[in-house]
């Protein structure tokens, strides 16, 4: 009996063969991803918190200085360690300790941000150019998570308005949509359909132009670590944390209100505006109080949440005449 030998290996170019170490790395990655699928669950949190996170120590990342800003809050800073180990970045897992564990994989170079939509100067801007676009400032902001905890973080960046001025949106631009990069090979959280990927957030044009709205590149005097949204993110301090989108690779100026990820996931719980508002509860929990990470412990009650996270004086005017119970 004659069996014809398969000859397909003849037409595989040597360049097409996956190098062994890449192959191994991929296997390793798949193993970890598989582990994440279940190992992220059915473990008590105390165990997860302990097994988690090679902590990025301060001083390990590239320096990024910024001059002090009058817009900075006077609150006591949340320790660096807490800021870089307790993160919501679902692309790297839904557990708050997972991003610190996995986000160092994020490829933050080369990086560019696409400018699209209703804007004169379309096209990609390289991250190096973005870094030089305006002088860096250090802005100490309160950050209030929709889950009821808060931090105080010294961000480094400049007002997003600086970028808007350069790219010149047309008269039709009423909103700005921001998109987080999609890196399926580094973002192990993407395999879980917990949210619609890529993550999208948005602002009304006047919110985007507000001087407090920060295009952010660093924290604590260094470039952003992966888990905090390297290499460039948004910080909107008077809104719940999920509005401050991480690792932006696309900015789209739009005439209509963009569909944002959490709003798509549960519209009755996460509105487009999502301003911090102690008088409007999340349907499932109160937003009247919050716990400041690193400060409010076992023997101090939660502190009262402030209207617009304490930025009412600067931003309340943006919402004049709006029913904030309706436009939550």
């Amino acid at each position: 009996m004659l069996i014809k030998k398969p000859t397909y290996h003849d037409d595989i170019l040597p360049s097409e063969i996956t190098p062994r170490d890449l192959y191994r790395r991929r296997r390793e990655f798949l193993k970890q991803a598989a582990a994440l699928g279940l190992a992220g669950t059915m473990l008590p949190q105390s165990v997860r918190a302990q097994t988690a996170a090679p902590v990025i120590e301060q001083g390990k990342l590239a320096k990024l200085a910024g001059r002090a800003s009058p817009l900075s809050a006077k609150d006591k800073l949340t320790p660096h360690k807490d800021v870089v180990t307790y993160n919501n970045y679902y692309e790297f897992g839904t557990d708050k300790h997972q991003p610190a564990q996995y986000a160092h994989r994020l490829r933050s170079r080369p990086w560019s941000v696409a400018i699209e939509g209703e804007v004169k100067n379309k096209g990609p801007i390289d991250i190096e150019d973005l870094l030089k676009l305006a002088p860096m400032e250090e802005r100490i902001y309160r950050m209030r998570c929709v889950e009821g905890w808060s931090m105080v973080i010294p961000w480094v960046g400049y007002s997003f308005a600086e970028l808007v001025k350069r790219v010149q949106p047309t008269a039709r631009a009423k909103y700005v949509a921001f998109t987080t990069a999609l890196q399926p090979d580094t973002m192990i959280g993407l395999r879980l359909p917990v949210l619609e990927w890529p993550y999208v957030e948005g602002l009304r044009m006047d919110e985007a132009m507000h001087p407090l709205t920060l295009l952010c590149f660093g924290l604590y005097g260094e470039v952003l670590p992966g888990q905090n949204g390297a290499p460039v993110r948004l910080v909107v301090p008077w809104k719940y944390g999920f509005k401050s989108i991480k690792s932006i690779d696309k900015i789209t100026f739009m005439e209509s209100m963009p569909k944002t990820s959490w709003n798509v996931s549960a519209a009755h719980e996460y509105g487009f505006y999502s301003n911090v508002n102690p008088a409007v509860d999340h349907p499932r929990w109160s937003q009247a109080t919050e716990r400041r990470i690193g400060e409010d412990g076992f023997f101090t009650p939660k502190r009262k949440t402030l209207m617009f996270n304490g930025y009412a004086e600067q931003v309340a005017g943006l919402y004049k005449g709006m029913d904030l119970k309706k436009f939550y």
Binding site: P44, Q45, S46, A49, K81, Y86, I293, G297, F298
Partner: peptide, 26 residues
């Protein structure tokens, strides 16, 4: 484990959340 963690600061960044979630979990 929880009692020791609460005492020694070993319950992560948000120890109260850890206590709440773990007691419910168990």
């Amino acid at each position: 484990r929880l009692a020791w963690g609460a005492f020694s600061g070993g319950l992560g960044t948000n120890p109260i959340e850890t206590l709440t979630r773990d007691t419910g979990w168990w």
